[in-house]
Design a protein around this nucleic acid. Structure first.
Lengths: 197, 197
DNA sequence: GTCTATAGTTTGATAGAC
DNA sequence: GTCTATCAAACTATAGAC
């Protein structure tokens, strides 16, 4: 994603960029190094001057995206907002990261399981840690008698899984802006689909 | 899944059964015919006396599961229940199908895109048709001024994506029964996480 | 219905010239 | 940094003996 002078991506960024697109559209295993090479109009072997392996490519994409989620959402989780406001803003922040990283976040959610060990396990832990911030806020809300009393793991996953499909309907030129999508989703998840009078 | 006399599965069912497990755990592309053969302690070539191809195997699993969703949920969508009750029962019914077909439903949600054409396109249409029943009920609710006024496509997907991760937390020996999971989820989605007093 | 043997592709990755 | 050439392994699927 890093731009060089002249607004052209260097080779490594081109590769990562195209890999994001292909891993998103077809999946990691359905994308071959030959596909990437063909897309960049170079020979497959040339890719290896820029990246070490296909696994590393997946790891770089996933890891950068994971970093964005942590960097954006965790400060909100640690902020002084009240519990309801905090969960709302975490949802909005999460959705904004998804929209800013449409393809990479799909990879983050769907393709990480194809990482080779030990990265796969590290990654699973990282995701659990991330989910933990949502569990924490929900547990707070339950303790404050603000949220209905379900297992916070249950509620956290229900929320995150609703958020994680944003990438299937968000369009850069669509009418809904990321913040609006986030606000709609938190409206449904916090207040429900049913109108309260 | 069909049982023979003596409660033993015939070979074809054994293959389908194991494929469900592997496609679920590792994904379709990450599962080879050799893996299936090894799991059944036969030679890879022997599989082809029972199934025509790997694609057909995926199709059979997905299609049977799709059939279950339609057979279980559509009658509720067409029932005379009021809008709120209908959506609640559709959610419960959907979750019950997921829980009855834990592995196959994961395949239904995550692996169908690896079907070869023309099955892939047929399948995409089928899923859209299924989603349509949820859109319809939501549109009813909006018209009745019962549900908050968002694009019904948006709400339908938010709901379905929250439901579609049931398979990651449901355990046969867990404390939550399928109907309870469905009721919890519809509580969150219809009334929201926030307690109303 | 299961086997051995193998055809025919495709895969990720490397060696080494330029 | 890109190329040609290629390796070694994996893949789906088939042919034909038993």
């Amino acid at each position: 994603m890093k731009l060089q002078t002249g607004e052209k991506l260097d080779r490594k960024s081109q590769i990562t960029e195209l890999a994001e697109t292909f891993f998103h559209e077809r999946g990691f295993l359905a994308t071959s190094m030959r596909d990437l090479a063909k897309g960049l109009k170079i020979e497959p072997a040339s890719l290896y001057s820029h990246i070490k392996s296909k696994d590393e490519l997946l790891w770089e994409i996933s890891n950068r995206c994971a970093g964005e989620f942590f960097a954006t959402v965790v400060p909100v989780a640690k902020s002084g907002l009240n519990t309801r406001g905090k969960l709302t803003e975490m949802i909005v922040a999460h959705v904004e990261v998804v929209c800013r990283n449409l393809r990479a976040s799909a990879v983050f959610f769907n393709e990480w399981k194809h990482l080779a060990e030990p990265r796969r396990s590290e990654y699973a832990n990282k995701r659990d840690e991330y989910e933990g911030f949502f569990r924490m806020v929900i547990a707070d809300g339950i303790r404050e008698n603000l949220f209905i009393h379900f297992d916070e793991r249950f509620s956290a996953r229900a929320i995150l899984s609703a958020l994680n499909w944003t990438h299937t309907w968000y369009r850069k030129d669509g009418e809904l802006k990321p913040r609006e999508i986030g606000e709609h989703l938190s409206k449904i998840l916090l207040d429900g689909l049913v109108r309260k009078i």
